[in-house]
Design a protein around this nucleic acid. Structure first.
Lengths: 185, 185
DNA sequence: GTGCTATATAGGAACCATTCCTAAGAAGGA
DNA sequence: TCCTTCTTAGGAATGGTTCCTATATAGCAC
């Protein structure tokens, strides 16, 4: 959904946030997608209209928006944070193949509860359900894995999704080291 | 639960994993707690009996165990991965105060489902429910926050839990920079 | 408008959990 | 006992994110 400038300005003002072109562009970009982009994704997109914007500004702004309750941050893998401007209660479908995240709204899931005795003094303020599996595209392309424990597999910053397991095998096979990384500057 | 050596050896053998003292110590340490320790926590604990063990070995071993389906990895914040030897279906109580994670078992939650049309072609293989709130200890000590959007707040590697928001304020207040970090060698 | 002040931005350096690389060591089977 | 393969330790590297700082700008008061 494309947000009207006035609507955005009001949301910012209500929370005591200054409105700047960069800030507006970042929030607009996030509000305009349901794909849960990373900070880097957002930076790349916003840079089209603000070539000088720094990653730092994107991180800082996302932090501010998160503090203000205007965006959510999700971390299903340990590689990078992903963001979401949908702050209504909702749930997630997490694809183990391509790592995409889809929103899921379901009133029955919204109403989940558990007995006080099961929580032993824990005061619950909210909840969220995550469903794991394979998105339609991954099902079509046969990305479905059958191995055990496939969720939360091989993330990590320097690895572009390789698992720890490949650690030494790669060395023995003489594969390229740090050359073929994701980043394309 | 303290695992018998035989039981552990069998679990490893079933999955084609070699059994080493380091590996046994790491898995034993994880199986003996419900606190969802980090790799660093485990390294610290295992080092008491294996002073030469390297963090690398801990990371590698946890990766192997995860691949084999013997442990789960969770990433509720973007700071560090946390691990769990409980591989039965269960759910989590996540404290927004001290960031502790408690296991929660509940058969009704285990049976959650959604209609096929709501998932639009997504093939579900599993699910998990996360409840957010404040643990009993944090409730006692008045750690409860009332602000909006308090989940997933200010994580990040270099920050020891400080939020992005403090970025510039700290500079203006002239607080110490990188001196007072968590790590204690 | 103009001026003022607090906050935002950009850029560059730093941080540190995690991974990569490598050689030497150990487990488990023949 | 030997051999092969997987593990370990250590040290270097990686890269998402944060820190530091000077400069720029939003928003308010006049």
């Amino acid at each position: 959904m494309k947000l009207a400038q006035d609507e955005m300005r009001q949301r910012f003002r209500e929370r005591g946030l200054k409105m700047t072109p960069q800030r507006a562009a970042i929030y607009q970009a996030l509000a305009g997608t349901t794909s849960h982009p990373t900070a880097e994704d957002l930076h790349r997109q916003v840079r089209r209209r603000h070539p000088m914007i720094s990653p730092n500004t994107v991180y800082y702004t996302l932090g501010v928006l998160r503090e203000a309750g205007l965006v959510h941050e999700v971390n299903y893998w340990h590689d990078r944070s992903r963001f979401d401007a949908n702050i209504e209660l909702h749930h997630h479908l997490i694809c183990l193949g391509c790592r995409s995240i889809q929103d899921l709204t379901d009133e029955a899931l919204d109403r989940l509860g558990i007995s006080d005795q099961a929580t032993s003094g824990f005061a619950i303020t909210g909840h969220r359900v995550e469903f794991h599996g394979y998105c339609a595209a991954c099902c079509r392309h046969g990305q479905v894995e059958t191995g055990a424990g496939s969720f939360n597999r091989g993330a990590g910053k320097g690895s572009s999704g390789r698992s720890y397991h490949t650690n030494n095998r790669r060395a023995h096979e003489g594969l390229a080291g740090k050359g073929e990384r994701r980043r394309n500057g």
